[in-house]
Design a protein around this nucleic acid. Structure first.
Lengths: 186, 186
DNA sequence: TTATAATAACTAATAGTATTAGTTTTTGGC
DNA sequence: GCCAAAAACTAATACTATTAGTTATTATAA
């Protein structure tokens, strides 16, 4: 029963991510988290700024993790291959870490500098790939916003169980990506 | 101080929607709602099955309201016109009723019969429009899923403040819709 | 090696939340 | 005008986050 367990921010955030993935983001509370870590809830305040602070850290971790998935997929690839690989990586991340993915969109402060910076890395990555289609300036931004919308929309609806009909979901995803590729080429 | 105010489900759900639109979905609690309605929290249990029940009713109301927006837009229109109009209507709804829109995606039980039925109406509406492009059977379903993904993704990211760059958001939306139209035509 | 300062745990207390149980008041139908 | 159902209520319980103040451990420096 040592009053100095040796907790750090990383351990805390990863524990929170585990709860989120296992039981949903709503299950991430200071109470459940402190139970998992074998400490009392107030002790968490030594590391994070309350529940809002925890949510920010979780979102940040999620965005950075997503960026790693995406940049790994884009590496050594170009054009359609790169777009398809990034799309698949995005969906894989959302499926493998559902709670953490949810956290990247859940009541986060987009004005926050850390969040902004991490998000920009993803945007720049996508812009870089889409520029290979001759999309520059405003059009590259439009296309990037479109690509993000497609990916988030699909992943989010799937996660909520919104695709009810008996039809292969992966096929629908490929259909959508190909539709997008055709669209940006003309 | 009458113990019989004359509350009904409709009044309750609309009050909840007002809170959601004004202060965000997280602000919708039995406590805030009962304060707005000038009753004590337990009284709400005469009309709804706790907080989960309230959320379900709110989601249902949102889905039905969205369906009204979309069918009004699709009426008397066909092809590209209909698709563009539905896209705009979707975005308009999400912008005008942000909290209610959020509710249509927030921890809802997709197995619930009422929710399922209301959702199917929207799906069928979209399928009907997309069939005019010669999309039938599986392809019509793929395209419908794609269209919903685009709309939800865009609306959701915009709502969270995710489109940071200084570039007109409506332009990006039109770009995305046109990209989709081109894609499904080839 | 020992004293001190910072860190990170703790307990205690408060306020806000949902929910259940049991009660009272009103209303509508007979 | 009576009675049953509906819809409000009060009281109580169990969580939750959070703040204040306390204590124990660790790291540092004399």
């Amino acid at each position: 029963m040592s009053p100095r367990i040796g907790l750090d921010l990383n351990t805390i955030v990863k524990a929170a991510a585990e709860i989120a993935d296992a039981d949903g983001l709503e299950a991430v509370t200071l109470a459940t988290l402190s139970r998992k870590l074998n400490i009392r809830p107030p002790s968490l305040y030594n590391h994070i700024e309350g529940l809002p602070g925890l949510r920010k850290e979780l979102a940040l971790y999620g965005i950075e993790e997503l960026e790693r998935y995406l940049s790994r997929a884009a590496a050594e690839r170009a054009g359609d291959d790169a777009v398809r690989a990034m799309g698949e990586a995005y969906l894989t991340f959302a499926r493998r870490k559902p709670g953490l993915y949810e956290a990247t969109f859940y009541t986060i402060d987009m004005e926050d500098t850390d969040i902004k910076l991490a998000s920009e890395k993803i945007v720049n990555l996508v812009i870089q790939v889409l520029q290979q289609y001759g999309l520059h300036g405003v059009n590259a931004v439009h296309a990037t916003r479109g690509f993000r919308s497609i990916l988030h929309g699909f992943a989010s609806i799937e996660q909520k169980g919104g695709f009810a009909m008996e039809l292969d979901i992966n096929e629908s995803f490929y259909f959508l990506i190909e539709t997008f590729l055709i669209g940006i080429k003309k």
